[in-house]
């Protein structure tokens, strides 16, 4: 759509069948996890090889259509030993908690156990992706837990509906855990990161409980936002 308007383009694509169907003028397919088109975080050498391979297609004169495959897997793909985050979470209850009054203190305790690591990560990188909800961390759980009580609380953030605010609180919870878990080396692969969050944290149980409540809810916004855009489908079952 850009090229037809007169500007040369090159695309780094992750899903080869999509590239085959859409036929972009110049494409480099890369065999990396969705969300990581340059392959490996904080590996400038590897990223540079990918970028150079893509930009080199601009020099080619044999298109359209050019579709090349990047030859190497990313180090992100192969799990690196038995990765654990540097902090230890409080023991996770064997069975799901039931009431909002049980969830809030238990989950707040889990969050407090990793907040020092998150603050370290934020200090080192000078930034954080936490903040989509615009709520301060102590306000996340009281807001989200209201939904477990069967209520749909009013949004306290201008320009966000109740359901959108809940989705962004869920984004913030996930970002807090992911950034804390990656505060120091050794770093997890994307798969290790997901498996740890979705199968070992009370926060993931909480998000699953919100999803289960949303599926039963007649409030359309809460139902759609939280049944589809909080827990990825591969992780809807607790382990």
């Amino acid at each position: 759509m850009i090229e037809s308007r007169g500007v040369a383009t090159v695309i780094i694509g992750l899903v080869r069948p999509h590239m085959e169907r859409t036929q972009p003028p110049r494409g480099l397919w890369v065999p990396f996890p969705l969300g990581r088109p340059l392959g490996e975080p904080a590996d400038a050498g590897f990223q540079r090889r990918v970028l150079q391979a893509a930009l080199d297609l601009l020099e080619r004169r044999d298109g359209p259509v050019i579709l090349e495959d990047f030859p190497d897997d990313s180090p992100s793909m192969a799990d690196r030993g038995a990765w654990r985050p540097e902090f230890v979470l409080p023991p996770r209850p064997a069975t799901l908690l039931e009431t909002a009054d049980e969830w809030i203190p238990a989950l707040e305790a889990e969050m407090q156990s990793l907040i020092p690591a998150w603050e370290g990560a934020k200090r080192n990188s000078g930034r954080t992706m936490v903040g989509n909800s615009r709520l301060a961390q102590p306000d996340w759980l009281p807001y989200a837990a209201e939904f477990l009580r069967g209520n749909v609380p009013d949004s306290t953030v201008e320009g966000m509906s109740s359901a959108v605010l809940l989705r962004y609180v869920a984004d913030d919870i996930k970002a807090l855990y992911y950034e804390a878990a990656q505060a120091v080396a050794p770093y997890p692969t994307s798969r290790q990161m997901e498996n740890w969050f979705w199968y070992e944290t009370l926060a993931s149980d909480f998000l699953r409980a919100l999803r289960a409540t949303a599926i039963e809810s007649e409030h359309k916004g809460f139902n759609v936002a939280c049944s589809r855009f909080v827990v990825p489908l591969p992780f809807v079952e607790r382990r």
Partner: peptide, 20 residues
């Protein structure tokens, strides 16, 4: 929620290669 965000959380260049 079907793509990895953890890479970008650690290094934005993994999806927005501005430094490279």
């Amino acid at each position: 929620i079907n793509f990895d965000r953890s890479g970008m959380q650690r290094d934005i260049n993994v999806a927005f290669p501005i430094d490279r």
